[in-house]
Design a protein around this nucleic acid. Structure first.
Lengths: 333, 333
DNA sequence: TATCGAAATCGAAACGCTTCAACGAGCCCG
DNA sequence: CGGGCTCGTTGAAGCGTTTCGATTTCGATA
């Protein structure tokens, strides 16, 4: 193993000079810098991470707590992960993978051992039992998602309330007088999942404000459940002409079922949804949608971490404004 | 930060004794052990990872190279990742997340800096250009997938040739005289992806051996492509009565298209596939299938890493025997 | 020309742990 | 009873960095 000492000797300078060339924390003459850099390249020197961490008490590692249980939407999770890893690398940080199943104890373990300088926690739920434990972690913590009680924690999330309002408003704008929300599975609402509740609230309040009739239909995955859910949402007494879908998993089956019923989108029924753009685009009928800006959220999470790591930055909450893309799946009434 | 020195003082022993209690590398009297453990608990001591790595030149970290580009099947990737993380934790290792896009340079970087003791690389392709570079990594490398040239590298993979043979054989056993392989997208074959080629070869050779007519149809994703592909596979001149599907992404559309054509599975057409069990189960028609044993492969990969890390274990190749689950989607002719 | 300050470099003390050589104590064997 | 074990424990030497003064150099200012 090539050490900084050997580089120093090769370049004819002291260890500290090499270190300062690497870190840029003190000024170094151009001439010296060049010699050192040449020696580094010539010898193939790589600074030892352990030694560095020990001396500087910084690991240059982020702990990322990911839900690996199936059930959550893996492709989206991966988009988050990818953007976080890539943003972290831009700041010269690496990412240690922690599983949510293993609990927040993991976050504590890696920070207490100085394996990670900060923690990013994905897919946070409203009532997450583990949130309190996170407060005991002696390192910045940033949550993707916004629990009810986020006092003292940084959070980033999509503004689901506004998203709900936008989608209801979009249909109201086009003259729809009765709309339905096809929601997440019942269990999601029952456990009070924050984002679902916030979207629902926005949807309802905007509908009320615009004097539009609104019904809500939680929907389990699976072809049969979708059909049953549609039976309710499209029951004649509602006179529903527009659907807001907040349940990515049922989009495909739902559109197929509509086709089976000879209901054309958007001629007979308008549909708008909240899902990743690539999903909305690749459906049999491309849907007007609000995107889940996974990329952006991940990047922001990393930026918030860095802010808290470098400055004396207090915890903050950031809600991303939703962006609606019209793909023509809604029509004017 | 609580250090080992403080624990030692608290327990009235030397630092080295505490260290040996922790590592178990020397015998310690029960009495002393108990006192030290109490002190550790009382003070809330957590060994500093950097110091440990520096002194022992072991990081207790595995670098995991994951393909994060979309296109690959994320849920399956996640199954691998989950099983790898969990197996690694069983050995007291953590997992550093590296992206495949960033290249094998990342593997080199983290090992050269002693951030990771070994590398696991997922989703390896036959002709992977980066394989040669991996040989220069000064740490054990284990591949999930088997490139053509794997000299000097450890690999784990499903035995796709046998899988192809099994599926063809399964249909032949049931009296089918003409079968078709609905394969991966053309691009996958064109770039000579190892697993696809191996399955194809097994499929063909078994069909030949059993004197069964076999046609092969690479299939792009998307409803239209699937329909077109079925047109070919089920063209009257073939007389195809059984389908082997090796393309997870098209299973849903394919079954729907068959239904649309009023072809019952298995009455009119037998279908067998290779995909994760949960996918096979949750399709509109549950399919007889060979599982992608992600869990198992991940665990084995970790075990191989550990073997190479602890013993003087030479690189090895392990092919998992496929396991076929009959879900009644094939019928006797 | 003497003095001062900034720029460039150096030396050495941490950082917290592992591990090796060494040592005393107790034991068994001859 | 002396010599050679093993067992449990210790002290101290690293491991490869960073970083904090201290020191040197040099040009500018007085």
């Amino acid at each position: 193993m090539i050490t900084i000492k050997e580089v120093a000797r090769h370049a004819g300078v002291s260890m500290s000079t090499v270190s300062y060339v690497l870190s840029g924390k003190r000024s170094i003459s151009g001439e010296t810098r060049r010699r050192v850099e040449q020696s580094i390249a010539a010898l193939g020197y790589h600074p030892n991470a352990g030694a560095r961490a020990l001396a500087s008490s910084k690991s240059q590692v982020l702990g990322l707590v990911v839900p690996l249980r199936s059930g959550v939407n893996m492709p989206v999770i991966m988009q988050f992960v990818a953007s976080i890893v890539s943003a972290a690398r831009d700041y010269d940080y690496d990412v240690l993978l922690l599983t949510k199943e293993a609990g927040p104890g993991e976050a504590h373990r890696v920070t207490a051992r100085s394996m990670a300088d900060a923690i990013i926690l994905m897919d946070v739920e409203s009532d997450d039992l583990r949130i309190p434990e996170l407060r005991t972690v002696e390192a910045p913590v940033v949550l993707l998602g916004m629990p009810d009680d986020h006092e003292g924690l940084s959070c980033v999330d999509l503004d689901f309330a506004t998203a709900g309002r936008q989608m209801a408003g979009h249909l109201a704008d086009r003259g729809h007088r009765s709309i339905a929300l096809i929601g997440s599975p019942p269990a999601v609402y029952e456990r009070g999942t924050s984002y679902a509740a916030r979207l629902l609230e926005g949807f309802r309040s905007e509908a009320a404000k615009r004097d539009v009739r609104a019904s809500v239909h939680p929907c389990a995955p699976g072809y049969d459940a979708v059909a049953k859910c549609l039976d309710q949402a499209l029951a004649p007494e509602h006179g529903t002409t527009g659907l807001v879908v907040h349940n990515e998993a049922v989009l495909g089956p739902l559109l197929l079922e509509l086709r089976r019923r000879s209901l054309d989108v958007p001629a007979d029924l308008s549909v708008i949804t909240l899902c990743p753009d690539d999903v909305a685009e690749s459906l049999p009928v491309p849907l007007t949608s609000i995107a889940v800006p996974a990329q952006e959220l991940g990047t922001i999470a990393v930026e918030m971490v860095m802010a808290r790591l470098t400055e004396e930055h207090a915890p903050e909450v950031r809600l991303l404004q939703p962006r609606l893309t019209d793909r023509g799946s809604t029509s004017r009434r």
